[in-house]
Computed example of a mutant assay.
Amino acid sequence: MLTITKPSDNRVDIELRGSLDADMMRKGLEDLLSMSEGVTNGTMLYTIPEFALPTLEALGVELTMLPKMFGLLGKYDKCAVLTDAGWIRTAAEVEGALMPGLTIKAFPLDGTAAAEAWLAA
C-alpha cells in the first residue's frame, strides 16, 4: 500500500506498507504528483513500517513515470524517512547526498518526534 496525504500546503506524507502492484504504484505516484502541485520549499515525511519488493509491473509503472517524478526535485528541500530497516535508512541518506537541493535524513520508526522537529527546523 502506498498512501499519500498532504497535511499542509508545503508538505506531503508518504506511507509505504508491504508490496505494491502496478495499480497501487500508479495511484500513489499520481497522488504524489497531484498533491505536489504548487509546492515550493516543501518537506516530506516518508514512513516505511514494513517493506517488501514491489511487483515487476509496479517497477515498470515507476519507470514510465520517472520523467514526471524528476519534476518534483525542485519542489522539496527536506525529506525525513522513518523506518527500522537499517539498509533503507542508509540508502535514503546516500540518495539524498546524490540529489542536489534535497536533504534526506533517516530516523528509526519510533523517531517521529525527532523527524518532525528536523523537518520544522
Score class of each variant (00 low, 15 high):
48 I>W: 02
48 I>V: 15
48 I>R: 07
49 P>D: 13
49 P>Y: 14
49 P>K: 14
50 E>F: 05
50 E>N: 13
50 E>L: 07
52 A>M: 08
52 A>P: 04
53 L>Q: 10
53 L>D: 15
53 L>M: 12
54 P>Y: 06
54 P>H: 08
55 T>S: 15
55 T>A: 14
55 T>R: 11
56 L>E: 15
56 L>P: 11
56 L>D: 12
57 E>C: 01
58 A>I: 04
58 A>W: 01
59 L>N: 13
59 L>W: 10
59 L>Y: 08
60 G>I: 07
60 G>S: 10
61 V>H: 02
62 E>W: 08
62 E>I: 00
63 L>Y: 02
63 L>S: 15
64 T>W: 04
64 T>C: 08
64 T>A: 15
64 T>D: 14
65 M>K: 05
65 M>L: 15
66 L>K: 15
66 L>P: 00
66 L>Y: 04
67 P>H: 08
67 P>C: 11
68 K>V: 03
68 K>I: 05
68 K>L: 13
68 K>A: 09
69 M>Q: 10
71 G>W: 05
71 G>M: 06
71 G>P: 07
72 L>Y: 06
72 L>C: 09
73 L>T: 11
74 G>V: 00
74 G>M: 09
74 G>C: 01
74 G>R: 04
75 K>V: 07
75 K>W: 04
75 K>C: 06
75 K>L: 07
75 K>E: 11
76 Y>E: 04
77 D>Y: 00
77 D>M: 10
78 K>I: 01
78 K>N: 04
78 K>M: 05
78 K>H: 06
80 A>I: 01
81 V>C: 05
81 V>F: 00
82 L>M: 03
82 L>R: 02
83 T>V: 09
84 D>N: 14
85 A>W: 07
85 A>E: 14
85 A>K: 15
85 A>D: 14
86 G>V: 09
86 G>R: 11
87 W>K: 06
89 R>H: 06
90 T>V: 11
90 T>G: 07
91 A>Q: 12
91 A>W: 02
92 A>R: 04
92 A>T: 04
92 A>F: 02
92 A>I: 09
93 E>K: 07
93 E>D: 14
93 E>T: 03
94 V>F: 10
94 V>D: 14
94 V>Y: 13
95 E>N: 15
96 G>V: 00
97 A>Y: 01
97 A>N: 12
97 A>H: 07
98 L>G: 07
98 L>Q: 12
98 L>K: 12
98 L>F: 06
99 M>R: 08
99 M>H: 10
99 M>Y: 02
100 P>D: 13
100 P>V: 09
100 P>R: 13
100 P>C: 01
101 G>P: 03
101 G>H: 07
102 L>Y: 02
102 L>Q: 10
102 L>V: 13
102 L>A: 09
103 T>L: 12
103 T>C: 06
103 T>S: 11
105 K>V: 01
106 A>M: 04
106 A>N: 06
106 A>L: 03
107 F>Y: 12
107 F>I: 05
108 P>F: 00
108 P>T: 00
108 P>E: 09
108 P>N: 08
108 P>Q: 00
109 L>F: 08
110 D>E: 14
111 G>D: 11
111 G>C: 10
112 T>H: 12
112 T>Q: 14
113 A>Y: 00
113 A>F: 01
113 A>W: 01
113 A>S: 13
114 A>F: 00
114 A>L: 03
114 A>V: 00
115 A>F: 03
115 A>H: 05
115 A>C: 04
116 E>H: 04
116 E>G: 00
